[in-house]
Amino acid sequence: MTMDLGQIIKEKAHELLASKKVECVLGYERATDGKTARPLFAYTPEETERFIFDETCVHGLAKFLLNWKDKSTAIVAKPCDVRSVNLLLQEKQLNRDKVFIMGVVCPGVAECSWDRVGPPQQRCNACPQHNPPVYDFLVGEPVPEKEPQNGVDPEVARIKAMTAAERRAFWNQQFDRCVRCYACRQACPGCYCTECFVDQVDPTWVGIRHSPADNHMWNTVRGFHLAGRCTQCGECQRVCPVNIPLMLVNDELTQEVGDKFAFQPGMDPSTLPPFATFKKDEHLGIG
């Protein structure tokens, strides 16, 4: 990293708060392990001194914009996070006037967990988007984008090559570990229902029991609700305490939606996701 992105963020955040252009700046600070990062909500110019930006800033912060909708907030957003902000704008969850996007030219982030900074994340290697697609302030110098890698993700291809029985066995084994903490949902920028289907009791769609049937129900429906909406930020998988490869569910569906609708979620704030639109003359080759 040639530029000190953290310093640029500090200065801009200071200016935004001092001039009262925003009420809060949402970015990253050092965590208590002294190594990794955590979200920081700065409300005063003084607090902006704590901002950092480096390869440990893995968290997608877009979801936090839903903490409030009436407060003008600046958000430090990597390109994948900008896509999440766009999703929320598309779906009318945010008011564009209230969000100031500090888009970061992203060098890629590392595999981080408590007290550990690991190698670069797999998803960042394949990521075709290093410049934020939308921003109000650019943090860093734009970089030339890599050619998007065409073709099917090898992991998705592996799953698709399985027979239905093999696939069921594979997912049963993965979902069996689920402890239903719903961290995947809580971290996901696309999961914002006032009451999630899994929490509804009348009628009860999913039981509380940690059983194959209930676990499967939760994990597959979660995936389906994000079909064509997942911005591939990877937060669900990052926060999963039992290492379920949740992005594999999402990626497979993203691929399906990409093939059928030539759509990539969150690339701009105005285009609605395919499942939020209806065209009479549309034929999907089903039914």
Binding site: F64, N67, Q186
Partner: peptide
């Protein structure tokens, strides 16, 4: 609470957290 995502993980890994739910199957 600004940054808490309100998952249940802290409680689930905690050796002393004991809240529960009961339902019929």
């Amino acid at each position: 609470a600004d940054r808490c995502i309100h998952c249940n993980m802290c409680a689930f890994v905690c050796p002393a957290c004991y809240c529960f739910d009961i339902r019929d199957y």
